[in-house]
Amino acid sequence: MSADATTVTAGDAALLRVEHLTIRFGGLIAVDDLSFAAQDREITALIGPNGAGKTTVFNCLTGFYKPSVGRFVLNLADGPRYLERMEGFDIARAGVARTFQNIRLFTGMSVLENLLAAQHNKLMRASFFALAGLLNLRSYRRAEAEAVELARYWLDRIGLSDRADINAGNLPYGDQRRLEIARAMCIEPVLLCLDEPAAGLNVRESAELNALLAYIRDEHRIALLLIEHDMSVVMEISDHVVVLDYGKQISAGSPAEVRKDPAVIRAYLGEEEDAELPPIIEKDLGEGS
């Protein structure tokens, strides 16, 4: 049991605490007693070989499945939220945004509309569930203007201002990646979860991404949780690294500490054949149940 991650207490001010998370699929243990925290204004990276259970943690965090054991505590200003008890869209409303490994933009919509769709909630509230919108009241028009303004702000940040009206599916790959992050930011989250944001990016795009993530951390002061394979991204921008292997936490700490950790080196280099295993780790059935 390493580092500060497992010493979480009720008074811990971390924005997100993952406590004793265990995820079983039948007899398979995908994540095994994982505990860590993600702080405000920090980028926490979740790394590990293929099949270590990183995406499973994300899926659980965003409500795709319920943990077998453990909980997610999101500490908001008005009290904690227990994410494992909430529906997907409520988790988003609590302020957790995420992206996927593959790009999932609304390709039939314009770039701007993608960003507006993420502000649906706010607009619904402002329009008394569309009543005001249908009547085109001033309050709704103001809310919509604000939504467009926020969208424009993020378009500026990702350099797509002049392409707001083109179809999102027609953007180059790297732009689509950044648009996804912008869209996630449009729900005005407190925690942004990114699943391999640098996948498929070239060196220049990867550097732009780093700058964007650092900007979000420093200017918007939210917590970022990152799954990443690209070590240049991880080492350069993350403040805290949690290393998973076979669903277990094998190391945690600053990037420099983690890099030197023998357990990490072993997981990445020493057992390369095993790293090719399918995403779910097979465990002894007896141990699983």
Partner: peptide, 25 residues
């Protein structure tokens, strides 16, 4: 044009993603 229509189209394309953006699917 409307926000509800946008949510409809978003759900048509990717219900999961729409839910993760806070749309009540």
């Amino acid at each position: 044009r409307t926000d509800i229509g946008r949510a409809q189209r978003a759900c048509e394309q990717d219900r999961t993603m729409a839910g993760l953006l806070g749309v009540n699917v």
